[in-house]
């Protein structure tokens, strides 16, 4: 009798839990905290990281990473001013995330095994593929790293790039003389004043350094890819709903690009969605936001505020910016790149 009763209670309990699920389980602890606080705390930089996190003349943050933070903030609050960019150093990223000072890290940081396991962090899908490359002066006649055997190479000290260069040089059987620099501007100056034959760096930074140099056409990026790192948003372990939310915000940006939804035409698209998927994305079909703990029109707000992924990219590091970096591998799948959205069904 007692066991039956216990079972009955258990079943009843399950039933209540099941009933409660649709409303409760959608909001994970992080989202709950963000909503209660009224702002999204996202990683910034203690200074600037060209193209990804910079400060404009008026002290406002801009950049690719910042815009992705902004997209998440807009998805939650429908208001870009609810984003709070916290200036943190590289070393501070993980402690700040784990102590709850910030809600997510979008700081040109790769997904790595040790970050996932030892540090107990969680990743979004990759929003950018960063390759490690080398730059050389055009008049040197070098066209691939193999031809640079015995040359000197400027490398940022204390970074993974140091290791990547060494192992790549081993692999293709050449020796390079590394010259290390702590500060980025020192490193840049050293190469551009010809202290080294080559300059190894995270690809985007390398391309940016070239584009802002006195004579960009005098330098070329070698085709060798020494390493690849997928840049991801990094989150605390154990809040699946928060990971889902960030992933779907990214997906919305890619999906909007794929379907040709832009900041300019999003109103039109919403008023008159050409396909049912677009209707779902933009919240024309009701109840699209609730499963993520968001409003129905979250994706509409995001695109209205920051544009689709192409617009975010071009504005910050692509053709709309001073850096003019081609998208190459970071194109959508249908343009020869590796980025793709999940399906909005």
């Amino acid at each position: 009798m007692l066991t039956v009763l216990t079972k009955l209670t258990a079943i009843a309990g399950l039933g209540v839990a099941a009933l409660a699920t649709p409303a409760m389980a959608n909001v994970g602890p992080t989202l709950e905290q963000v909503k209660a606080r009224g702002s999204l705390e996202c990683s910034g930089h203690n200074g600037s990281f060209l193209g990804f996190a910079e400060v404009d003349d008026k002290g406002a943050w801009k950049g690719l990473d910042i815009d992705l933070c902004r997209a998440v903030a807009v998805a939650i609050f429908g208001d870009a001013s609810k984003l709070n960019v916290v200036p943190i150093s590289w070393a501070q990223r993980w402690p700040a995330l784990q102590s709850g000072d910030i809600d997510l890290v979008i700081k040109a940081s790769g997904g790595t095994f040790s970050r996932d396991t030892e540090l107990g962090l969680q990743f979004s899908r990759a929003y950018f593929l960063g390759t490690t490359k080398a730059m050389v002066r055009k008049d040197s006649g070098i066209t691939s790293l193999k031809e640079a055997d015995g040359g000197s190479i400027c490398i940022p000290a204390g970074t993974t790039i140091e290791r990547q260069v060494a192992s790549y040089a081993d692999r293709i059987g050449i020796t390079l003389e590394p010259i290390l620099f702590e500060k980025t501007e020192e490193l840049r100056e050293a190469y551009f004043s010809s202290r080294c034959d080559l300059y190894a760096q995270w690809g985007p930074t390398l391309a940016i350094d070239r584009s802002v140099s006195d004579d960009p056409s005098a330098h070329i990026l070698l085709p060798d890819v020494m390493a690849m790192e997928p840049e991801v948003a990094i989150l605390r372990q154990g809040d699946d709903q928060w990971v889902d939310l960030v992933n779907w915000v990214f997906s919305a940006l890619w999906f909007a690009e794929q379907e040709g939804i832009t900041q300019a035409n999003v109103d039109e698209m919403k008023a008159n969605p050409p396909t049912s998927e677009i209707g779902k994305l933009l919240g024309v079909t009701p109840d699209q936001g609730a499963p993520l703990g968001l409003e129905d029109d979250w994706a509409y707000n995001v695109i209205k505020a920051v544009g689709n992924y192409a617009e975010v990219y071009e504005r910050n590091i692509g053709s709309g910016s001073i850096y003019d970096m081609p998208r190459d591998i970071n194109n959508l799948w249908n343009n020869g790149g590796v980025l793709y959205p999940m399906v909005f069904d």
Partner: peptide, 23 residues
């Protein structure tokens, strides 16, 4: 600056840390 405060040295870094003024 190392613990992410935007004191004068950090804001100086930010001041030249934009494509236009890196040099």
């Amino acid at each position: 600056i190392i613990i992410g405060f935007f004191e004068i040295l950090a804001s100086g870094n930010a001041a030249y840390g934009t494509g236009e003024w890196t040099f």
